[in-house]
Write a protein that binds this DNA or RNA. Sequence first.
DNA 1: TCATTTTCTGACCGCATGGCCAAAATCTAG
DNA 2: CTAGATTTTGGCCATGCGGTCAGAAAATGA
Lengths: 206, 206
Amino acid sequence: MRSENEPFGQKPRSFIEEARRAQIVGSAVAVIAEAGFAKASLARIAEHAGVSKGVISYHFAGKDELMEEVVRHSYEGAAEHVAARMEGLSTATELVRTHILAVAEHMRGHRDQIKALGEIFNNLRTADGSPRFGINGNEELYRMLEHLYRLGQAAGEFRPFDTRVMAVTHQAAVDTMFAYWVANPDHDLAAHARELADLIERACRA
Amino acid sequence: MRSENEPFGQKPRSFIEEARRAQIVGSAVAVIAEAGFAKASLARIAEHAGVSKGVISYHFAGKDELMEEVVRHSYEGAAEHVAARMEGLSTATELVRTHILAVAEHMRGHRDQIKALGEIFNNLRTADGSPRFGINGNEELYRMLEHLYRLGQAAGEFRPFDTRVMAVTHQAAVDTMFAYWVANPDHDLAAHARELADLIERACRA
DNA sequence: TCATTTTCTGACCGCATGGCCAAAATCTAG
DNA sequence: CTAGATTTTGGCCATGCGGTCAGAAAATGA
């Protein structure tokens, strides 16, 4: 099903190739954020990028690969920022709180990305009609959060609770915080994040 | 924009009309739940209902009205059940917990409905491309939850916290609980609901 | 029974989409 | 400069969509 670029990472790409891909990904983010997934056709994205439609087909295997590239790119940026903020922390309480605050802090400057991400998650389908990034696509994230929460339980910071439910709830709360902010731009994202961190801390602590 | 049936409720409908509408709504739920919103075309829904495509156009103003009817129908059922379960309770703690448990209890027997609801919320758009039931469509729900939480705060059961953040988080947690269950049918929905009720109770209590 | 209204059918329309490709343009080495 | 490779163009295609419509069929009621 996948193309043959998995075994050893991507096949090498020329400079101009990479540049075009990046440009197109940027246009895709902008168009999706502005017009919504449903109206983000290849034609519109190409127009926004100032190239002809065929160029996208030339540089990407198809619309799906382009969308996946948008997701990968946006995720990477956020993950980097969060990881940097969490480095050096030790207690689970600090780690959980920082995880929430840091991702909010990063996304505050990348509204288009988080909006596009939401659109793609909700709308992109595989050929058989099932969601391409369904809730089960969060499995990796859930495991990471579970690990964090178990750490706190082992250290005695957190009471015993079902870590899967906590992880699912945590991620849902963060995702919806962004969705609410995207729908209400004047909403105070940072304050929401702090309040949410308080809620979760209280729900967890022994 | 709307047809002329608002002022005094719906215009009267014949028996056969109501029956057909109900049948088509049922087929829409089934098709959306099975194939996803993207593949739930009028043609497929009509085929599932065993009628020709034109019948849907005859009984509904358009696809949008059909989808809205699916939402209305599913919501009504859940709201009724939840209201019945909450009747007679007095403390905010009980009310919040029961609200969560009751809706889970009801949806346990209506998987197709909750799945179709999720699909429609995530995918249905207005003509201009914006979500038909976006997060701002939850405003009524948010206000109701805020009311509940403020009740608890006034009674001294709950500590002071931002009730809007709590309401948004509460609803997100419940919605995602269902999404997780839909994606993982073996997941224990009732246990998840109890665990979630515990989380929220601890996050709230003074 | 038969005229009238309600309901249903299936073909058809215009439209937008993602993908395709031959030819043109541009870049790169030798 | 030139030949070959890379990149871009713009038109074309098949597909599936929601919606429409004239006429057939069925229900209704006098």
